[in-house]
Design a protein around this nucleic acid. Sequence first.
DNA 1: CCCTTTTCACCTAGGTGGTAAGAT
DNA 2: ATCTTACCACCTAGGTGAAAAGGG
Lengths: 198, 198
Amino acid sequence: LSRRPGICFLPTALKELPVWGSCRTSRRMFPTFQVKLFGMDPMADYMLLMDFVPVDDKRYRYAFHSSSWLVAGKADPATPGRVHYHPDSPAKGAQWMKQIVSFDKLKLTNNLLDDNGHIILNSMHRYQPRFHVVYVDPRKDSEKYAEENFKTFVFEETRFTAVTAYQNHRITQLKIASNPFAKGFRDCDPEDWPRNHR
Amino acid sequence: LSRRPGICFLPTALKELPVWGSCRTSRRMFPTFQVKLFGMDPMADYMLLMDFVPVDDKRYRYAFHSSSWLVAGKADPATPGRVHYHPDSPAKGAQWMKQIVSFDKLKLTNNLLDDNGHIILNSMHRYQPRFHVVYVDPRKDSEKYAEENFKTFVFEETRFTAVTAYQNHRITQLKIASNPFAKGFRDCDPEDWPRNHR
DNA sequence: CCCTTTTCACCTAGGTGGTAAGAT
DNA sequence: ATCTTACCACCTAGGTGAAAAGGG
């Protein structure tokens, strides 16, 4: 990448991400993936995008008695490998660097037939989010330089297990505490709804 | 305008527009100003914008007994002449022509100290909305061609009187019938709340 | 008296986890 | 037994006109 952007990741703490929900059966990725970019050419156009790759070839299940994830066999067939473009793409480097870039429109689903362009994942599988910066090369033969015109950033701390329902009660409480849309559950006593023996 | 866009106006029927309301005291323009564009250079960048000019130098008042507007003196001092850029600006001609362009983010206020960049109007005055298409000239000395790089469209049927409260009961009913956010009043019998003798 | 501002119930639109029923 | 789906109450966020209160 001739104009190589630097990056500063804003850490998020989570381990389970729901892949099922409302609005045409998909859920936002929460916490939201956010980055602060620097070192770009202010006047050049860039596309920002994300995708998700399997961490391994395994399927997992949650053991409530030990509150831990166990390998439960080989991975299911891979889902369609979709890409999420940040909706502001393309934009100038100056625009991207001006403030924190937030991927809050990114949505996850486990519906293989999803027709809304959402990211498709297998539930009970582990994923690594990836962030890509693509320099929009104005040269006529830009395809030739495709290899050098993008850069990928991977933050291992953002790995997670896709779920359709939360397994670990502490994850649920963390989400309720931090997501404004889940405020309706903040005052509830977790002991009121003990499910299994979390 | 070297690339002169054609235009097709989608008519709106209204006579009074509130200039006061919630969300930092401003109201959306409703019905929304919408245009269908054609004849633009698909690859060139354009800015789309709107502004509002006084129809005359008069102030009006509403005569309930005759259900009509009467001249009530000379206009108040003109408000700051602000401009509303369509938030998708700048964009390629192809993008603008792809579908109807809707100015649904445009908001009106009568607050002279407005700090949110909204359009400022005098209540009880008449205004003519104007629509402008600006070709983003890539030439270095583009300022020289400013005159020929924009085109203004005026639709007289979109003239209206700015108000802080509806005067004509039939306007109120029309808005309630057509604005989804006013659905809460649809089932009410207008005779239940007669104000003055509208 | 005429007009403006405040406040409110009631909407649209859509993102939460809980719960119970369904599926395998 | 384990996981998924459908539906729900309950939120966020913000756009309506009505009614009451305010101001000149």
